[in-house]
Design a binder for these strands. Structure first.
Length: 779
RNA sequence: UCGGGGAUCGUCUAAUGGCAGGACGACGGAUUCUGGCUCCGUCUAUCUAGGUUCGAAUCCUAGUCCCCGAACCA
């Protein structure tokens, strides 16, 4: 079915979209956008991967670029073709295409090997004979530098020969590795001579036994990106530390294409785990029924559950992309699924737990065929689908939960003496109950109110609700699998043993459900809404011609009804969470203040300057601290003061205004000189320049340098009162709606008006004057 | 010798010195032959403390909290 509704996606710009837009604008990569989704074929894809897939393929789609599906298959011992096929299938199912066939990192093994030899020849890599434990010991710790491997300066020829021998199978696994020669004292552990290659005598799922050495991720990945001429290599936050090494590999191999890596926050969902390892455990310990168990957060599981690709994609759009570690409310996924289902799932009636209602005034053996549309009027997309016939006879089933002998007032369903409507049919009045020997209610008797077909209300009687129902004689029996969230705790990962957080009631198999007969004759519609119950999917594996099996996709949204709250609804066992956070916050390293002091201690004249600034210029201790961390800053300040500017003002500008213009640069890397800064400050202080213009000129000076008085002649000046009033009138006129809001009490809008006027005046108005003029004009 | 990231409604996410916005959720109402959908309304946020500025979520300073990094995994 086509969905005309675009769904909830006013696509806002997340940081990657903004970044690509900027790259396109500045012409990086000749305006190309090439991304990739690079799974390792060692497990099934899950909802977290879906986010990444939607991001990578989505970005490519949006900007007219391309996205490759590439298997990062550098570790033959964990990887299998089964996973390759499942993953490719999942990507296609989500609706993305990746060209003729997927790509493989292993396709570039030859190139990687040659480039590794090049690194060796250039003295940038060496074969190391330390064992695993020794390498770890030599690497040092987070706080302490590492020590160089004794093999670090092994002659190039020897490394070359050994590397070849490693690949020829002349050395056992673990005996030798190829390492990059970078920096054993690097504060980034990834740069302490990282491993490039290790020996693995395992058959690779694609290259067989052709290789005895396999590249490590950090070496292989950037080259795979480069080979594919990827422009934006997007990965998750935990790879931020790897970026430096990524850039090193591209730079040192001198590969003639420079991809760049960007990181975003991986998806975390509450009541869910998205760890391949843990997912694998669930499957292996048979705590679920395979990778495609409908309770699993795998793409295969969601597919089997009945989710559509559109729903999953809409969810991924809904949650956004950022760098915050966050945990998304599972309710958002359910919202996306319901929203999708509401528009696509035809309505039929099914009773999960049947309760027999005998309509005593309907003759036995009589059948009336009623009509029911597949969609309600408020889903116009479904109008074309028409409807189906629904049989009514003397005995019908209603949901056991839809009858109470002693109902509360907000229970809007059947009870003795009450009238309800059987959906698409008649109203009925409950006359009595029938019981078994133990006194349990096993049925209800009711009379059918003939005149109420087609919506007519029974004379003088309240209709308590509308119930779904099926004709007992015609209904089909079905098995219905009702799924609940797999975990009872919001954060299963917080448990020492995450399987203890499993929800014992995540699956309930209902075997005696009854479904209206139309489902056997509608050509096998895949997804229905069982009215008033939820959305259901014909199980693609177990549902057969002669055996109906439905999976619950998701329930209808329910507004709370006190009378229906299950009494034994155990609270999630949150209390067990015991595992302390894996990496407790560590003591901070050097603070910036310490760094500045360190710089001064290394260059003693700076310490003198600091004292001097305090004594002679009256700067506060903090101010003089902040402007004496480098010689270039000190020089700038002194020159500015020499040019006649007040020391206090200079400090203020250097501390508060300059950093914005500088960014990461040092003053010496810009065109700004102290004399110009001083001249600028003088003009700002004496009122020649408005604050806004002065700030704009600072930006100009940093960027282009130049003569201050010439710049002032060009950019300076200030509006007189009449010109200002004119602009104010103009701005207010153009924003009549805001003016009305302001007068209605939204005084925060003053800032908006001032801002607009400042903009229109190009800064040539003093803010206080503008404020006054605006206030006067607004009354 | 520690380094790299991050902190905005209950949740997710916008706002490049100028109206703190959207979505989920919750609550209330309208509508309804689904306790659904739809519509309307309400709710709730800039980690803390100082500073700069006419104006700060945004710039500066100090602090707090969270995440990642020492696999021959990716």
């Amino acid at each position: 079915m086509s969905t005309s509704n675009p769904g909830p996606e006013p696509k806002h710009d997340h940081f990657l979209r903004a970044l690509i837009r900027e790259d396109l604008r500045t012409g990086r990569h000749q305006g190309r956008v090439a991304t990739r989704f690079p799974p390792e074929p060692n497990g099934y894809l899950h909802i977290g991967h879906a986010k990444s897939i939607c991001l990578n393929f989505g970005l490519a789609e949006e900007f007219g670029g391309s996205c490759n599906l590439r298997f990062d298959d550098t570790n033959p011992v964990t990887e299998e073709v089964e996973y390759v096929e499942a993953i490719a299938n999942d990507v296609r199912w989500l609706g993305f295409s990746y060209g003729e066939r997927p790509l493989f990192g292993s396709d570039s093994f030859g190139l990687m090997f040659e480039l590794a030899k090049k690194l060796i020849r250039e003295g940038k890599a060496y074969v190391c004979a330390l064992n695993e434990e020794e390498i770890r010991a030599y690497r040092g710790t987070l706080q302490e530098p590492g020590r160089p491997s004794p093999w670090r300066d092994r002659p190039v020829d020897e490394s070359l020969r050994l590397f070849d021998e490693m690949n020829e199978g002349k050395h056992p696994e673990g005996s030798l590795v190829l390492r990059a020669k970078i920096d054993m004292a690097a504060s980034n552990m990834k740069m302490r001579d990282p491993l490039l290659y290790r020996i693995k005598r395992a058959a690779h799922h694609r290259t067989g036994t052709a290789w005895n050495v396999y590249p490590m991720y950090d070496y292989a990945h950037p080259l795979e990106d480069a080979v594919e001429r990827i422009t934006h290599s997007i990965c998750t936050l935990e790879f931020e530390n790897n970026r430096e090494l990524y850039d090193w590999v591209i730079r040192e191999t001198a590969y003639p294409w420079v991809p760049r890596q960007y990181e975003f926050a991986r998806l975390n969902l509450d009541y869910t785990i998205t760890s391949k390892r843990k997912l694998l455990q669930l499957v292996e310990k048979k705590l679920v029924n395979g990778w495609d168990d409908p309770r699993m957060p795998t793409i295969a599981g969601m597919r089997r559950r009945g989710y559509t690709p559109e729903a999953v994609r809409s969810f991924c759009e809904l949650i956004g992309v950022a760098k915050n570690n966050s945990v998304v409310d599972i309710g958002k996924l359910e919202f996306a699924v319901r929203d999708d289902m509401n528009r696509r799932a035809p309505r039929v009636m099914a009773v999960l737990r049947p309760l027999r209602v005998t309509l005593t005034n309907v003759p036995e053996g009589e059948t009336e065929w009623l009509e029911g549309p597949y969609f309600p009027a408020d889903v116009p997309e479904g109008a074309a689908m028409g409807g189906r016939k629904i049989p009514l006879s003397r005995d019908v089933f209603i949901e056991a939960d839809d009858f109470r002998e002693a109902p509360s007032k907000d229970y809007l369903r059947l009870a003795p003496g009450r009238v309800v409507r059987l959906r698409y049919g008649y109203c009925v009045r409950c006359e009595g109950v029938t019981r078994d020997a133990e006194g349990r209610v096993v049925g209800v008797t009711a009379t059918l109110l003939r005149e109420t077909l087609g919506g007519a209300a029974p004379a003088g009687e309240k209709v308590w609700g509308v119930l779904h129902w099926v004709s007992a004689a015609h209904a089909l029996e079905a098995e219905v699998r009702v799924y609940d969230r797999l975990f009872a705790a919001a954060r299963p990962d917080a448990y020492e043993d995450f399987t203890r957080a499993l929800n014992p009631r995540s699956l309930e198999v209902i075997s005696g459900a009854r479904v209206e007969p139309s489902v056997a004759a509608d050509g096998g519609i895949a997804r229905y809404q069982f009215e008033r119950v939820g959305y259901f999917y014909r199980d693609p594996v177990d549902c057969k011609e002669d055996r109906l099996v439905f999976n619950k996709i998701v329930g209808l949204k329910e507004t709370a009804v006190a009378d229906l709250k299950p009494l034994d609804d155990a609270a999630p066992v949150e209390a067990l969470a015991a595992k302390s956070s894996k990496s407790e916050t560590r003591p901070a390293g050097r603070t910036r203040a310490q760094l500045r002091q360190l710089a001064r201690d290394n260059t003693p004249v700076l310490n003198e300057k600091r004292a001097h600034f305090e004594r002679h210029y009256g700067l506060s201790s903090d101010e003089s601290d902040l402007v004496t961390a480098s010689l270039s800053t000190v020089g700038l300040v002194e020159e500015a003061i020499a040019a006649g500017a007040a020391a206090k003002s200079v400090a203020r500008w250097v501390i508060n205004e300059l950093p914005r213009e500088l960014g990461e640069r040092d003053v010496s890397e810009t065109k700004l000189v102290g004399a110009a800064l001083g001249a600028l400050i003088v003009k700002a202080d004496d009122g020649t320049l408005t604050a806004t213009v002065a700030r704009a000129l600072l930006a100009t000076l940093v960027r282009d340098g130049g003569d201050v008085s010439a710049l002032i002649a060009r950019e300076g000046g200030r509006l007189d009162a009449a010109a200002l009033d004119e602009i104010v009138t103009e701005v207010l006129g153009a924003n009549a709606d805001k003016v009305a809001q302001y007068r209605a009490g939204k005084t925060a809008l003053v800032g908006f008006f001032v801002g607009q006027v400042m903009k229109a005046a190009k800064g040539k108005a003093e803010a206080s004057a503008v404020q006054g003029a605006v206030q006067r004009a607004l009354g």
